[in-house]
Every structure is written in C-alpha cells, then in structure tokens.
Design a protein around this nucleic acid. Structure first.
Lengths: 189, 189
DNA sequence: CGAAAATTTGACATGACTCAACTGGAGTGG
DNA sequence: CCACTCCAGTTGAGTCATGTCAAATTTTCG
C-alpha cells in the first residue's frame, strides 16, 4: 500500500495491514503529463483518482463557451466526476493535469468488488463524501455571502501557496470572475 | 419500520427485514409545528432527520444580516447540518419548519452504534452522500452558468409545485436574489 | 375587520462584465 | 543569442444585471 494513501485512510478509519493490502491490489499507479486529460467531455468516468503529487483542474465548458473551473485537485485529494461515475452517464466535464502528476487510479467496478471484500471501505468513502459535501456547502455559502473581491481575497489568503501554483485566469474561473476583474482587484489594494 | 423510509432505503441497497427492524428501533417519530426550529445557530447538531410529510428551510444569517437559505427539505429527503453534525461544533445554521411537519429523527451517536450492528447502513449513507454531493455540485454549476433570471426560471420550471409551496421571498433567498428582483423578472415576461 | 407580512413598482446606485488596446515575459526557431 | 510570436496580465471606457431604498399595494391571518 502506498504510504501517503495509507496515512490518509488511517486518519479516518482503523484498518488492518491485510485489508490495506487487499485494497492496494486494486490501485494502479499512474502518471500524466502537464496539459494531458484524465477525463474529457462525452466520456463516461470509470474511476476515482487519488493524487500523490501534482495538480489537476476540473472544469466544464458552459453555454457561453467559457471554461468554468469547479475544482482544483492537489496532493492527498480524490478527484473524479461523481455525476458521471455514479450514474454512469457521459461526463460534461474535463479533468486536466496542470503539472506533471502522479496518482493512484481506483476503478469503480473494482471498488464495488472491494466493498464486498473490505466492507470498511464503505465507511471510509462515506466519511470522505461527508467531508467533500461539507466543503461544497461551504463554497456555496461563500458564493452567496461574499463579493468577488472578498472571495478572491479569502481564497488567496487561505491558499497562498496554491494561488502561486496556478495562473491568475484559472483562479478567476474558479471564483466565477473574469481575469480582468481579478487584475483590477489586485491593483486597487 | 416506517413504510416510506423502507421504500427509500430499498431504492439504494438490498436489506433484510431484520436489519430494517434493528434500524427502526433507533428512529424516533416526531412532529413539529410551522415556524418551529429543528436547529438553531449556536447549537451543536446531534441528529439527522428523514422528512415524512411537510417542509423545512435550512438557512443562516450572513455577515450583512440577511437570512440566506441554502436548502429546502421536503418529503423523502434527509436534512441536517453536516458541518455541525460531522465535526460536532456549534452550528451556524437554522433549520425551520415551513409547515406542520412529520419526520424521523436519527441520533448520530445511535447511528455510530447502528453502523456496527448493521454495516450495510454505511453503504446506504455512502450512496446518499454521493447523490447529495452531486446535487450540491449541480447547484454550483447553475450558480456559475445562469443569470439570476435563468436560474429562477429553471427552478420554477422544474419545481412548479414546490415553488407554490413557499413564499417568493424565500425562493429569492435560495436563489441568491432579492425579492424585488424576482418580482421584476415575473412582470417582464 | 384590521394589522402585519409579502409583493410590487420606480428611481437610482454599483459590482462586475465586455471589448479592445497595450505591456511584458517565456518559449521557439533560425 | 537575437527576433518573433504568443499568451498572460493590465488598463480604461462603456454597459448591464442586479441591488438598494422607499413608497404603494395586495395578501394573509389572527
């Protein structure tokens, strides 16, 4: 079992070496180059990915043709398109590497088998989903309560390192603002 | 076991009568009157609630002092403040009945015990959380891609019955718009 | 029936967008 | 290693969607 993932799992559940090693049999270590895609619109998503090193952006093309980033994925995060994965329908999303990235792939059909062998993983993924949902909820609250300027400043304030790692226009997209507007925010302060 | 909840559970997992009856021992049938609260700011949320009949709104008071509705809860939905429930911290949220409402209460400490007795419930709640998360994600996409007018029309179009059930100013709050603006949307079409 | 709450309407304000032009680095090829 | 291109970022002018505030009207409900 990969050391990073082991630590991550043990933050949430207690699990034996044996169970971990069964889990690890289903994980495929992969790498992907900068700008390559893990998922493209029209493809049905078949797996979840645990990021070991690197960074993804998760976006879609909206009705007006703009790339709208809904997430970034970094080290120690799971990334996937749940809407496509869970309902097994073609995705409207793209997941693209922003850097050379290493990750573990967990196929969803395999995961279903795994749940039978290691039922504790149901618990693990339940807990992960709860936290993921709470984060999404938090995001909705910020979108409602903060102005663009406040949202930008909050994001950069709480993720200073990450804000360096991605270009400004992607931050703008993530925050639902235009690059021009971000530029004006910065100059006015 | 309550019939509604049984049907709901069996949409997602296969489960025996015995397991269901263990589950049902932990459920408390309750009712609440219109305008009463299930949860108030400052209280730590201790349970999840399955709505049998009636309706709740889930809101918080933002920095500017406005009530910001983040969800409505209706029949066959679970409602709770996950942020408070999962981390056991005081809630920033209110959950208030909009009608006389009947629901089943599931205490979180009990649920932890239940997971040991009926591990399948981990699976059940994992699946529920996945769907709940997907819905939250969808909401974020709408907030990004649609104008206020479009969002309002989409909501009323897909929930015509529900839109009747709550006052306009609450819809406005849920959509992140002002009641005045909703009024203008309606008059201009 | 009357008071309180919800909705509507209008005048005005503003946050954020659009578009277009400009600047400055980062690669790339000769 | 220079010249060129290209992309990200900046700046400014003008616009538009939506908000604010206040008053008028309608609905709800005790």
């Amino acid at each position: 079992m990969n050391r990073e993932l082991e630590l991550y799992i043990r933050r949430y559940i207690t699990i034996s070496e044996e169970e971990l090693s069964v889990f690890s049999q289903y994980l495929i270590l992969k790498t992907i180059k900068k700008k390559e895609f893990l998922l493209k619109e029209g493809t049905t998503c078949k797996a979840r990915y645990f990021i070991l090193e690197g960074c993804f952006r998760h976006f879609y093309i909206d009705v007006k043709g703009n790339e709208q980033i809904i997430h970034f994925g970094i080290e120690n995060w799971w990334i996937t398109d749940y809407a496509s994965l869970v309902y097994q329908v073609p995705s409207k999303m793209y997941i693209q590497a922003l850097e050379h990235t290493t990750f573990l792939e967990l196929n969803e059909e395999d995961l279903e088998k795994l749940y039978l062998k290691v039922p504790k993983l149901e618990r693990f993924f339940r807990i992960i989903m709860e936290k993921t949902y709470i984060a999404a909820q938090q995001r909705i609250e910020y979108m409602f309560s903060l102005t663009g300027k406040e949202f930008y400043e909050k994001f950069v304030g709480s993720n200073p390192v990450f804000a360096q790692r991605v270009p400004q226009y992607m931050l703008a997209s993530y925050l639902g603002l235009t690059p021009e507007f971000i530029s004006k925010i910065k100059s006015r302060s």
